[in-house]
Design a protein around this nucleic acid. Structure first.
Lengths: 327, 327
DNA sequence: TCCAACAATGTAATCGTGTGCATTGACTTT
DNA sequence: AAAGTCAATGCACACGATTACATTGTTGGA
């Protein structure tokens, strides 16, 4: 195992002090161009790079970002995570990923991560409360994704607004003659979960309608499949689902297990607009998130936080209708 | 922003030296039980936790693990990553995720991560060569996933063996009367890519058959969809795909665009056995990886590496046939 | 009673970098 | 020519925790 070369050794090789080596790297302050290039070429030759851990120790800035997610397997989170990580890489920040989904003790997990002095925390998971995140990560103010859009001086928010697009979808489905609506949500009491249901409920209310049937899944395919069996026993000709994956599960059960025709007998509407929803075998109508804008918003908030005294902000991202052939 | 409490401050509060505070934490060596519990209760009260960065500085052990992946969006990698991260969390190790897929300069990205003194590196991506990984991450010996199973003293390997299961699948498909086979691989020249093709080619050879048609995608749905249009112009009644996602794309094009019936007109075989392949709307026959065993193997190699002078090992994981209704 | 052994804790060095301050030397100004 | 200015660099300390070594106090045995 080759040990890594240290700045002191490089200084000895270059015939300067370690302080001069240190000065050769970031902004190149107060240092003759000759020695600077000398040091840099020697550094390249011995493949020297400063130790980020030691640097962080007196910088008070680690360059680490904790991403608290539910489960990467979930396509919605996978797409968001992928986009954000690419963005962080461009900002020369390192993501540490925490999977709350399968963890026994989520708070313990976050404490374990907090000792790494992360500069920023992005909480995607709704299994973690804002207060816990703020309390545990003392070195950084969290950014909460899809939480309630209330001003909160201890965290920044990115949240979704889908009322308009939901109305657009409902209007079309009602115009098609559907009258018996169902909603398949999550069991979670998180803000965004309730907000999404409300967008559609409000849109229905304007037609004098409401959800006659309701179900609760856990955002997985299997839960959508299972809930379909229960919910479709009632008279239902349109189902709105809390995410795309449950919608696909529900549709599969309806079509393959219960012999319904989609969209003739049953309209199915998802949420998130994941790439898989666009696969031709699904071609799901969905209340879609603009993933690019979403990631840009998060990255922007992180950028804001880099000045010490920045106020905490909130950003609202508009959803749009993705039209498929299931509604 | 609450600063984090330091060991020196806690020592002052407890009326001891910072050395004693340090001794109270890990193995509790040489320290009276009274002061130990006193310090621990005070630590809990002020929610003190040691700074991992400072600790790593003289420990020579950071607890960080770099996971070099292609793209999280890819369901195969997402499932493996999820499993491995959960396992790492149980081992109290922190994962840093690098996405090579969308990165302009992959080597630069790895260099950026290498300054964090990671203890271990797991390379899933085939966009990075073994030599580059070893060269850049001097502080850790990489574990290479799905690379060639040759002994290599600078890295450990986990690789797949699918010859037997591939033969099982091919035997069944040939018994069904198929004779005109095609293979849709990746453009990558990685070992595992070629090995997978070989498993099926060998199985076909035993029936005096071979791949009459070949295509090259990039492991995405879209590339499977597009290649279908080209490949299915030839006379083909069975296609083996390099992964499940391309298989689904190819099947969608065959069914919805070209009017083929699966499996009547065309057998479709995927690889990886991802969860999505099991969704009823796909129900893909696939050469599946035992994800549990795969993750356990990687975790085992990491555990091995924790003793300084451990030999580098390689582990072979057997694939199995997942039977769906596409073949 | 005296010395040795040992447990408990403090002191100080260490890990690798970054940076304020002091020092040196060359160059400019009057 | 004397003095002031400024660029270039070294010195030393800080960041926060760990650990070898030194020190203290206590106890047990001869």
């Amino acid at each position: 195992m080759n040990k890594r070369i240290t700045s002191k050794e490089l200084a000895r090789l270059a015939g300067v002090s370690s302080a001069t080596v240190s000065r050769a790297f970031p902004g190149a302050t107060k240092l003759s161009e000759a020695t600077r290039s000398h040091i840099l070429s020697l550094a390249a030759q011995h493949s020297y790079q400063p130790n980020a851990l030691a640097r962080s120790l007196n910088n008070q800035r680690s360059g680490l970002v904790a991403l608290v997610v539910n489960a990467i397997q979930n396509p919605t989170e996978a797409e968001q995570l992928q986009g954000l990580i690419l963005q962080l890489q461009r900002m020369a920040l390192m993501p540490i990923v925490l999977c709350c989904g399968g963890a026994e003790d989520r708070l313990q997990l976050m404490r374990l991560a907090s000792i790494y002095q992360v500069d920023h925390v992005v909480v995607f998971s709704d299994l973690v409360t804002l207060d816990d995140a703020v309390e545990i990560f003392r070195t950084a103010r969290p950014i909460i994704v899809s939480s309630e859009p209330l001003p909160h001086n201890r965290a920044s928010h990115v949240t979704l607004e889908g009322a308009k697009a939901a109305a657009e979808i409902i209007d079309k489905v009602v115009a098609d003659g559907r009258r018996h609506f169902a909603y398949l949500g999550g069991r979670s009491s998180s803000y965004i979960d309730k907000a999404r249901r409300r967008w559609f409920a409000d849109a229905l209310a304007r037609h004098g309608l409401g959800f006659a049937t309701e179900g609760h899944g856990d955002f997985t395919y299997d839960s959508g499949y299972k809930e379909a069996v229960v919910m479709l026993r009632s008279r239902v000709d349109a189902v709105v689902c809390g995410n795309d994956v449950m919608a696909i599960g529900l549709r599969d059960a309806a079509v393959h297990l219960m012999g319904r025709k989609v969209p003739e007998d049953l309209a199915v509407i998802g949420q998130d607009g994941i790439q898989i929803a666009g696969w031709q075998s699904h071609d799901l109508t969905s209340l879609a998130i603009d993933q690019g804008a979403y990631v840009q918003a998060i990255a922007g908030l992180i950028e804001d936080q880099r000045q010490e005294d920045a106020a905490q902000r909130r950003v609202v991202i508009d959803c749009f209708a993705r039209w498929g052939r299931t509604a």
